[in-house]
């Protein structure tokens, strides 16, 4: 294969380039239930690509696999479920330690039913939950 083989480095996988920069800390992600290693500063899309995962979601109508396309946050092809929240653009979102990512395999591309996403499942009418405030913020 042509190209500068010296510039590639094995960091658990061969897709990360070594030349020109050194990476920061490793972070651990959970992607569709599997443990995946990434580096701080990488976008979710880049980290998944480096781990050999290009399909990021399944389309609602036909279930076609889609992946990153424009890379600049305008096409919305790369939207994945991140920590229970759907519609997160993988190309713009930096990875974080412990991030849970769902790419729609086996119909799991939706917000987790039991994620801590504000569902006051056990709250009763008198509970102190400000249901109108959105995610974690006060009005």
């Amino acid at each position: 294969m042509q190209g500068d083989r010296r510039c590639r480095v094995t960091v658990g996988n061969e897709r990360r380039l070594a030349g020109g920069i050194s990476r920061g800390r490793r972070v651990g992600l959970v992607v569709d239930g599997d443990a995946v290693t990434a580096f701080e500063g990488e976008s979710v899309a880049a980290a998944l690509l480096a781990a050999g995962r290009r399909g990021l979601r399944a389309t609602p109508r036909r279930g076609d696999r889609r992946g990153m396309y424009c890379g600049i946050g305008l096409c919305f092809e790369c939207v994945t479920v991140v920590d229970g929240q759907s519609g997160v653009r993988a190309c713009l979102t930096p990875v974080r330690e412990g991030m849970r990512i769902g790419t729609g395999q086996d119909g799991r591309g939706y917000p987790d039913a039991d994620a801590d996403a504000g569902v006051d499942a056990d709250a009763d009418a008198g509970a102190d939950v400000d249901a109108g405030a959105g995610r974690g913020g006060a009005r």
Binding site: C7, G20, I21, G24, R25, E40, G41
Partner: peptide, 11 residues
Amino acid sequence: PREFTVRDPRK
């Protein structure tokens, strides 16, 4: 990204 350190800008 900020978290990367640039070693060789020419690359």
